[in-house]
Simulated assay, not measured.
Amino acid sequence: MVVELPYSLHSRYASIAIAWTVIIIPPVFINLGLFYGLWYGKPEIDRLHVLTLPTAVLGIFTAIAIVDRVWKLTRSSPEYRPLNSPRHALDIFQWGYFLALILISALITSALARGDADQDGHDLQIRLISLPAAVLMYLVATLALLSLALSRLELKLPFRFGSLDAGNVVRPAIFYIVEDIVAVDGGGGLEYRKAFIARYDSSPIFRRMIWDLSVVWMLYFYVFAVLLTVLVFTLPKAAVYVVGWAGPFPFAGLLAIWTIFHVKSELRKERKGPLENERTPLLS
């Protein structure tokens, strides 16, 4: 019997629209608007200040998002926390978020700190601070690869990992990402975590789907990260900032659309009949 996932998109379209607006506006419109507006519209401003301001503003939005998410996970109610976890344990997605933030911050800080050492009109600096999205994709793909390898080897966890107790086999990266994002950012809470884990444990088709999605997203992220890196270091300086920061969104959107149709197809197979009222757990 298929375990139902207590999650419907019909009551969450407004919150999803708001969430994606917050995701897209800061890195694309505000970040790019500030950079190109100041770089070409205010030539009298110190170039280092122009390079610093957009990423500083983006950092403010990032900090707000982190505070909001950490507050949900550490509040007295365990509503959003991983199953049976202590109050300040956070979840796997949040720890991955922190790791990505550290790597990206190190990249931007080191790029800005070097100044125009090459006397190239800040050409190398602009290219370096155009790489955060590529760095993020390299990181996610590598973590996905590691999770797939450990899962294939059936390595058992020596300690609690998210909602899973010690002794459970490591699961593909998409499993942790979906569980945490839907439970916290999508508002699914503990009820969703329990149902999602039960669905994974009870359904071979569902497990295969999670594995396949992890493989596809891993490969896609590696390929596109390499492509993005090549473009950032070969295109004219004026184009690389927009390519580096805005380029990933349309391509990620295409992969997301494929994911939606693939998930629906797999869930139909799981039910051995028409997919009637099921809401895909990946559309958070």
Rank of each mutant, 00 (worst) to 15 (best):
L9Q: 13
H10G: 07
Y13L: 13
Y13I: 11
I16Q: 07
A19R: 14
W20G: 05
V22G: 02
V22C: 08
I23K: 08
I30M: 06
L32M: 05
L34I: 04
L34R: 01
G37W: 08
L38R: 01
K42T: 06
I45S: 00
T52D: 00
L53S: 01
L58K: 07
G59H: 07
G59L: 10
T62L: 15
I64G: 06
V70W: 13
K72D: 14
S76I: 11
P78Q: 10
P82D: 08
L83S: 08
S85N: 10
H88L: 15
F93E: 09
Q94L: 15
W95C: 08
Y97A: 14
I102V: 15
I102L: 15
I104K: 11
L107H: 01
S110Y: 10
L112N: 06
A113E: 07
R114A: 15
A117E: 13
D118I: 06
Q125D: 14
R127M: 10
I129V: 14
I129S: 03
A134K: 00
V140T: 06
A141C: 08
A141N: 07
S147D: 12
L150V: 02
L164Q: 11
D165T: 03
P172N: 11
P172D: 09
F175D: 11
E179V: 05
D180Q: 04
V184G: 05
A195W: 02
R199S: 13
Y200T: 09
Y200I: 08
S214E: 09
S214R: 04
V216W: 02
V226S: 02
L227D: 01
L228G: 04
L228F: 01
V232A: 03
F233K: 05
T234N: 11
V243R: 03
G247D: 02
F249N: 03
W258R: 05
W258C: 11
H262G: 00
V263A: 14
K264C: 00
K269P: 01
E270A: 12
K272S: 12
E276R: 10
N277R: 10
P281E: 03
L282G: 02
L282C: 01
